[in-house]
Design a protein around this nucleic acid. Structure first.
Lengths: 137, 137
DNA sequence: CACCTTTATGTTATATTATTACATATGTAA
DNA sequence: TTACATATGTAATAATATAACATAAAGGTG
């Protein structure tokens, strides 16, 4: 389970489209959907879904962003070590997504992996929560 | 984190479509996609996607089946207590999905939840693995 | 540099996954 | 029975994602 990877040197050499998409995600600060990204980037000259998806795929591969599987959305990586193992808290009321550092999980995960004799590449954990803001309202 | 639910009484009163879909999933023993289920059930008279999705939604809600979010597929619940917290091992090579009992995880999860002061409804954990069969081949 | 290979781009078309809308029917409970 | 919630059938369409193909730019090696 040492499947973490640091941001590669290549991360400095992102292509034009990759930079544009990453930039949008960084500035938005929230999870965005591919077609919403496309809408936002029409003015930058990106006009086909595939241009977005290709950039997203690459950024996911590099660990710069993550896909929120249960929502088909993408969020910038907020984890200093850029682990391929991801943990998110997703508010079921407002949809807000927050990435969680996963260190506390490692013992339990190790146990589970050992007990099930799994050959794990990576994992993704999604918590469905009621976020603070939604709880108080 | 006591978010487990047992199969309700209502589970015996599944509707016709729900029974048909559940039955297919039980017999197949693997994760199936909605439109593949639809194809298989044309002979049973189910002919629209919505009939499938409605049955799937209900079965998920009842905890009889689970959705594999990263694959958009559905698998019958293999967990005796039918927890709403789910753990899967998904083979990246052959796509095979296996549900894992999650007891070993609870301590780590509790820690993580406490530390992040989360209000957790449920969680879903997906391990991406190389399964035994694929490992030996 | 010249050559080759890999990776990215642009574009069109299409595949896959999922929901809206609306009319009708069925189950359940007072 | 009436009322209400839940399920069904059907058609249309929305949302998400990929295939295929031509071209271009980047990176390595002689």
């Amino acid at each position: 389970m040492s499947s973490t990877h640091t941001h590669s040197k290549k991360s400095q050499s992102l292509t034009k489209n990759q930079k544009i998409v990453l930039n949008l995600l960084q500035n938005s600060g929230e999870a965005l959907k591919a077609y919403s990204i496309l809408d936002s980037l029409k003015k930058e000259g990106l006009k086909s879904p595939l241009q977005i998806y290709r950039a997203l795929d690459k950024l996911v591969e590099l660990g710069k962003i993550h896909k929120i599987e249960s929502r088909n959305s993408f969020i910038v990586c907020n984890n200093s070590n850029c682990a391929s193992n991801t943990v998110f808290a997703i508010c079921e009321r407002c949809g807000n997504v927050k990435e969680i550092k996963n260190s506390d999980l490692s013992e339990g995960v190790k146990e589970l992996v050992k007990k099930n004799r799994m050959n794990v590449t990576r994992y993704n954990l999604e918590f469905f929560v009621l976020c603070k803001s939604c709880k108080t309202n």
